[in-house]
Design a protein around this nucleic acid. Structure first.
Lengths: 215, 215
DNA sequence: ACACAATACGAGCGATCGCTCATATTCACT
DNA sequence: AGTGAATATGAGCGATCGCTCGTATTGTGT
């Protein structure tokens, strides 16, 4: 018996009253995820926390996964905005500065709501929302590949797709890890600056010589 | 009411008969985690899959978390062995070759049981075993810092601890991501080799100029 | 052969889960 | 003011959960 994996809203909220209900449910889900973890987030618990009856919850969401998916979407929209803004800013900047811009943006994005980000990063794979997140990643790769292409004369990169993979994966991991496991690093401006500079050097050094090694 | 988080065995298995029971339970847990995911892994389900009564399960494990923790330990021991072997081999090798050795080892380690690794990577934070995993990481940092120190004359690294963080985090992320999200890449020797070479260049390039930029 | 320890068993408890549905309330529109 | 649609309610169902405990079986030491 396959588990139900519906993540789409059950019906649309038309009146402002019901939109408030939906918002309260999503907000409650996020709060419980952060404060008590995925396991404690039962539908009954979420409804209670939202000050909404369990019946109303099921009017708009087919189940727990849909609630979590909604939280993910909301969070990802914020991340996407930061990334897109940074990419716009980076366009036209010289390579090194552009890379630095993107790295700072990555840190900012992770710092939006670190606790929620952590829980989501851990739980996303279990919500059936995984494919969409990977789609999100693919889009990121495409965007970054386009960005790299602007500087292709400086790079002469052999495999642009691979370079994008290296770029995105590395920056994501470093910022993610720093934000989640080294919070002290980001509170101290000097340490944070060192992280940014080291990461920039790592990436720029790689990009500058990438593909340029033909015996 | 705080959730129980005991992860230590309840009592020691003394006879070979009971050791077999314990092994069967751990093995069954791993299998269910891989095949059906964390949620489906109830204690009843695990006991059934192991061909052991639920009562026996609770003779040796205080709960589901302890089973998962045991699986984690077993898996981590295998990873640790690969890493230590690689570090021994890398010691004495010239820098670039040593880095390559470590990167290949990282890929090998992730390839031991990718599906299990994936599930564990997703579920570890929720078992109360998190601290131990982070301890494991710290140990890794220390080992790699020691490794880097051997080549310190080549690197003149300013902050060895930071360099280790960059090293470990980057290599882990790239190999992890490649194994889990780009399995095709590793099945084709040419693509895999390119990944290894690119990553090696990324790291060596970073290390060689690390800290060497004093205006 | 006997006794006791170690191990294995599984019915079934109380709690909680996801979720439904019959009913009550509020809103939009005339 | 009246009416139908939209929204909100929560008791409670069947299923499953983690887990206990009284009992049966097997192993060890003498």
């Amino acid at each position: 018996m396959a588990r139900r994996l519906l993540t789409n809203p059950r019906k649309q909220a038309r009146q402002s009253r019901s939109r408030a209900t939906v918002d309260a449910l999503i907000e409650a889900t996020a709060r419980i995820l952060v404060r008590e973890g995925f396991d404690q987030a039962s539908t009954n618990r979420i409804a209670e926390q939202a000050g909404v009856s369990i019946g109303s919850l099921y009017q708009y969401f087919p189940g727990k996964d849909a609630l979590v998916a909604a939280v993910i979407d909301r969070h990802r929209e914020q991340l996407g905005k930061v990334v897109r803004t940074a990419l716009a800013k980076a366009t036209g900047q010289p390579l090194e500065q552009a890379v630095r811009t993107l790295i700072v943006a990555a840190i900012d994005a992770h710092a939006i709501d670190p606790k929620l980000h952590r829980v989501l990063a851990e739980q996303i794979p279990r919500t059936g929302r995984l494919e969409q997140v990977e789609t999100f990643s693919r889009e990121n790769y495409a965007l970054f590949a386009a960005f790299l292409e602007q500087h292709s004369d400086e790079l002469r990169v052999a495999d642009l797709e691979l370079a994008s993979f290296m770029f995105v994966t590395t920056v994501e991991a470093l910022t993610h890890s720093a934000v989640l496991h080294r919070p002290a690093m980001l509170r101290e401006p000097a340490a944070m600056n060192r992280l940014v500079e080291e990461t920039t050097r790592l990436i720029v050094g790689y990009l500058r010589q990438a593909g340029g090694r033909r015996t």
